[in-house]
Design a protein around this nucleic acid. Structure first.
Length: 823
RNA sequence: GCGGAAGUGGCGGAACUGGUAGACGCGCUGGACUUAGGAUCCAGUGGGGCAACCCGUCCGGGUUCGAGUCCCGGCUUUCGCACCA
């Protein structure tokens, strides 16, 4: 590796990143360069980055990649004249921190401040334009006081409720997980198979907001991939709810409600299936079947979610009862099977084995009848099945009485209409989105502000009594009792009921970390204000967030929850907007050796050593030059040197220009250099808003190549604008060079250079000449050359005209670009 | 299985609405300056051919004067979701 310190000893004016960066970081602190006038800003711009969980390992390149990408954007907006607010904070509660503390045998309350201090050091060393007066940590009582307040607002408006529910339980983390934290039946954090448990939990009614959360997506300026992920997660399905009359085991009449997206296939519904947890199950078991069914129910109840959700083989049992298919009037058996989920739809389905893969598999296994009711064009309606036919395009209904020959779409409408007349069906919409379980049986989170009283029930802690402080306890290790470690601390949870004064008991669960992060962006401008969570005036000035940049791993978790909380606060009148982020861009992932960075793979890159070797500016530039910001890239340190060389050359060009006093002022400029300069200003200014950072850097490199290959030394006017262009990427060197160019103010207050559109256009161009679409030559001509003249010039070239036999049949001319002679 | 994104030199990647494929960088080759260089500077660098030229953007078709870009079919990689009725 090269050694900038030694190099510096030999040549005093050599670029020494450590010295330059240290100098400017200190000066930014001393001068308050990055501080924003929150109350007085006239042109506010809120450039938000996702706040990190302050891990003990410190900031890794994945974090830094995202932060730098946002910082460049923010600094660019500032150079455009905006008052840019770029705050930073810490998502410091949660299982991450707690598990790590447990591993070390330390208290998270001690560990987190150390980690935060380390993060801050790293972030400052990286040169981010952070206003440190507006930092926050979710673990700060001054912050989580308002997290608890948010919970109380939802409770007050009936959007928080408590229910006993089968929840995802991670036996390793010993806690309940949200559906979003279960990946493929396993715990998101430790990959342990998740089990089912019944616990009393607090839920938020996010499913009530499903339609709005879905519909608003159409109008948000967000990365398409993120919007698609949210749409899929919300999972809207349109169909019908259909009633199947059934006779219970005791001869009573029952109705089984099913949800289907394919009402057109009802003539093929040859049996019904209930989820094992379905409330009608007991009523439908006939005496003859009782033992077998009870045995089955017991077996499925014990089974953990992973076995149930990922098992490929179907299991099930006949109840002994029959229901009536309202379309055919025929009796069909009612089965129980665990492939039907109680959480979705009505917990019961009409099985159409001819046209659903799962039903087909089940019917084959248990010998249930399979009827074809939809037929692709040209297929034989009476042919045997080898698999379910699930297609619909161009298909027609068959074996469906008077609906025969209808298309699938027409059949859907007609059949629901027919059944609706008998009150046996109605159109229905279902969402996959479930209510948000926010209870966590852990220690390291904000206590849920509820007090249970024998007389009054669940009583909210009065807002004036917030925060409910998380007590410092040494004994915070979770156990598998299903209750929080706080439930072992009677001195904490025993408290008077706020309503009646009788002795009550605090809720001992804490809330989900995602609640902490669901509203943090509202707090930043108001940090330091302690009587409201977010000041109405400041909020109106700064929010919603102008640009949010973050990882797509939060496409459905954090981004959906924060949209929900914002909508709720809007509906309550606390906010005058209902979407928190006007513009969201997902950045790519930095991988190493083709794999995602992770501690277990041992391929995590810590920025510190790179910054120590190359400087923050070169490292920032390298991260951005790696590939398109929205796609990420493979980290390989080999090519950092390219960016460093570019900065070295910029440095020496400016130093040379400054030293050469003779050329200051209005010296004549080479027109080639000036043209390239103006083209570069234009390109960089267009690329940054598109987050096309890699091509912006390439453009600056190109310009520097033109400049240094020129006949004479670079002059001020040729280098000063580059210092401004490079400033968002490499802020320290830019400040230093800007100062050396004789400016006393920060380069970030110097504005963005403008370009002369007339200068951007080349007057001489290379016109591409093709014959029959094949490249045959290039003509160096005036930009505004006409077709006839170009053709004449082309035909005069022997190397071109030799491909043209006789006179051209056709000539295609694209002015300024290309001439194609079709012979 | 469903959904998203993507396949371009030795490598990372450029190429806005179809119009000069390979910008920029790494690496590599040669040269200069040097006691030396893993520093710096200069030149070259998709493949084939002495050359004229020919071939080249995952594969196969198609549209077009012209396709990396558009259409149809297939393959591969990758990231989400996954018995959602």
């Amino acid at each position: 590796m090269n050694d900038p310190v030694n190099a510096n000893e030999e040549r005093p004016d050599e670029y020494d990143p450590q010295e330059v960066e240290g100098k400017w970081q200190k000066r930014w602190r001393d001068r308050g360069t990055n501080a924003v006038d929150i109350a007085g800003a006239s042109d506010p711009y809120y450039a938000l980055m996702m706040f990190p969980y302050p891990s003990a390992e410190g900031l890794h390149v994945g974090n830094l990649f995202a932060f730098v990408g946002n910082d460049i954007y923010g600094r660019f907006q500032r150079l455009q004249g905006h008052n840019v607010f770029e705050p930073f904070g810490y998502d410091a509660f949660g299982i991450h921190s707690e598990n790590y503390a447990l591993k070390l045998g330390k208290h998270p309350g001690k560990l987190i401040p150390e980690n935060i201090a380390n993060f801050r050091r790293q972030v400052e060393r990286s040169g981010l334009m952070i206003d440190w007066r507006h930092t926050l940590a979710t673990t700060d009582p001054e912050y989580y006081k308002w997290t608890q307040w948010v919970f109380l607002q939802l409770l007050k408006h009936g959007l928080a409720y408590r229910k006993q529910a089968a929840v995802n339980w991670c036996p390793s983390c010993k806690t309940v997980l949200a559906n979003e934290q279960v990946i493929g039946g396993r715990c998101e954090r430790c990959q342990t198979p998740v089990e089912q448990r019944l616990l009393e939990q607090w839920f938020f009614r996010i499913s009530d907001y499903a339609p709005r959360l879905l519909n608003n997506l159409d109008h948000l300026d967000w990365s398409e991939s993120t919007r698609t992920a949210q749409r899929n997660w919300i999972g809207r399905s349109e169909g019908a709810e259909i009633l199947f009359p059934a006779e219970a085991a005791d001869a009573g009449r029952e109705e089984i409600r099913v949800f289907t997206t394919r009402p057109d296939t009802i003539f093929g519904a040859t049996y019904l299936v209930l989820a094992p947890e379905h409330p009608l199950v007991q009523k439908l078991i006939t005496p003859a079947q009782r033992d077998a069914v009870e045995e089955y129910l017991e077996r499925t109840a014990k089974q953990d979610l992973i076995a149930r959700k990922t098992s490929t083989e179907k299991t099930g049992i006949f109840t002994g009862s029959y229901a009536v298919n309202p379309a055919t009037g025929l009796p069909i058996p009612v089965w129980i099977a665990d492939y039907v989920l109680m959480e979705y739809g009505t917990g019961a389905i009409m099985a159409v084995p001819g046209h659903d893969d799962r039903d087909f598999e089940f019917a084959m296994l248990f010998g249930l009848p399979i009827v074809r009711v939809v037929c692709a064009e040209g297929d034989d309606p009476e042919a045997d099945f080898s698999s379910a036919f699930t297609g619909s395009e161009g298909a027609r209904l068959v074996n469906s009485g008077r609906f025969n020959d209808m298309t699938v779409e027409a059949g859907k409408r007609a059949i629901v209409e027919m059944l609706a007349e008998k009150d046996a069906a109605k159109p229905a919409v279902n969402y996959r989105l479930h209510d948000w379980c926010i209870s966590r049986q852990r220690y390291w989170g904000p206590p849920i502000p509820i007090i249970y009283c024998d007389a009054c029930g669940a009583v909210p802690v009065p807002e004036k009594d917030l925060p409910v402080i998380l007590p410092y306890v040494e004994d915070f290790k979770p156990d598998d009792s299903g209750v929080s470690p706080l439930a072992r601390h009677e001195e904490w949870y025993r408290v008077a009921c706020p309503k009646c004064g009788a002795m009550g008991r605090r809720e001992t669960d804490v809330s989900d970390t995602f609640l902490d992060s669901a509203w943090y962006f509202l707090r930043y401008p108001s940090v330091g204000i302690d009587d409201v969570p977010f000041d109405p005036v400041l909020t109106r000035k700064w929010l919603p967030v102008d640009t949010y940049i973050g990882g797509n791993e939060h496409a459905v978790l954090h981004l959906l929850y924060s949209r929900f909380v914002t909508m709720v606060l809007h509906d309550m009148g606390h906010l005058d907007f209902e979407e928190p982020y006007v513009r969201f861009r997902a950045h790519g992932l930095i991988i190493r050796n083709g794999a995602k960075m992770s501690k277990s793979r041992g391929n995590v890159v810590i920025p510190d050593e790179y910054i120590a070797t190359w400087g923050a500016d070169a490292f920032r530039g390298y991260l951005m030059f790696l590939g398109p910001f929205e796609e990420g890239g493979d980290f390989r340190d080999a090519s950092i040197s390219g960016v460093k060389r570019f900065l070295d050359r910029l440095w020496s060009s400016v130093v040379t220009a400054v030293a050469d006093n003779s050329s200051s002022g209005s010296a004549e400029h080479s027109s080639e250099v000036m043209r390239k300069l103006h083209q570069t200003i234009k390109k960089v200014g267009e690329d940054i808003p598109r987050l096309s950072y890699n091509t912006a850097i390439a453009a600056m490199m190109e310009y520097m190549n033109v400049l240094r290959r020129g006949e004479r030394k670079p002059r001020r006017g040729e280098v000063a604008p580059v210092v401004q262009l490079v400033a968002p990427f490499a802020p320290h060197i830019a400040e230093e060079l800007w100062e050396r160019l004789g400016h006393s103010e920060s380069v970030f207050d110097a504005g963005w250079p403008s370009f002369d559109p007339a200068l951007v256009e080349e007057e001489k161009i290379e016109l591409a000449v093709q014959v029959n679409g094949k490249m045959r030559g290039r003509l160096n001509v005036r930009r505004d050359i006409g077709q006839d003249e170009a053709l004449a010039l082309a035909m005069a070239e022997g190397s071109i005209s030799k491909f043209v036999n006789g006179s051209p049949r056709k000539v295609v001319f694209v002015p300024g670009r290309l001439l194609n002679i079709v012979a």
